[in-house]
Amino acid sequence: MKDKLAFGYPEGLTTGGTHYCPGCTHGIIHRLIAEVIDELGVRERTVGVSPVGCAVLAYNYFSTDYQEASHGRAPAVATGIKRARPDLMVYTYQGDGDLASIGMAEIVHAANRGEKFTVVFVNNAIYGMTGGQMAPTTMPGQVTSTSPRGRELDLAGHPIRMVELISTLHTPAFVARGTVIRPLQAVQTKELLRRAFQYQKEGKCFSMVEILSTCPTNWGMPPAEALNWLEKTMMPYYPLGVFKTPEEGVDRAPLPLCGLQDGGK
């Protein structure tokens, strides 16, 4: 009987270190993506796209062809690649400032056109690379370098829930949210990623997985504490789960208009 490798280094990753901070969960997410690419056997036809953000150097870490994108534009770049070569497996790896702020138009329209690539959206509620500024996903009251009194809702509004927003679009898509702060959740998130890539492989639809992630450095807390903060503060506001699949119906019934007939009571 031949020996079977139970655990090893994914082929989808390059060897050598990363520039990520200690305690950052980008490394785990990279590994999950690489494992999914390996398991689906698509590494030789996969192209990643990373825009500006902490993952700006991701092309050094994934052993696939890669394109760097300008800030927010990864879904447009990925559209170009996928439309030019539909045989390729294409994914974007975007942060919250990138996807939910400067790149809002690109993500919404790529999703709405049903572009057949996969979006990995890493939400750590802060701008990491530029040094901890407020993001569109920063939590109410969360102190950042540009919200020194904490996020003030009357000035900055509430955090944007991207998977909820994207899942209101009619175009069939796979939209889900996971996290990687506990081993079980990492395994679940890997399953979400696997489904997202599988749908793409089958030429089915746009797919997007949001992954709640920590930023101990810019949150100003030790890694273990960051995990707890994410669980207590972010998870109630950003619930985990599958929000949309291409198989099920997509339109929710609107709530009834109230008060039109009874004098506004």
Binding site: V49, R73, P75, T79, A84, L88
Partner: peptide, 20 residues
């Protein structure tokens, strides 16, 4: 593809040209 903006259109160009 009718893009959502010229910003997006030009970045689609980038992706497609990058794919050769």
């Amino acid at each position: 593809v009718q893009a959502e903006s010229e910003v997006a259109a030009s970045n689609m160009l980038y992706g497609a040209a990058g794919a050769g």
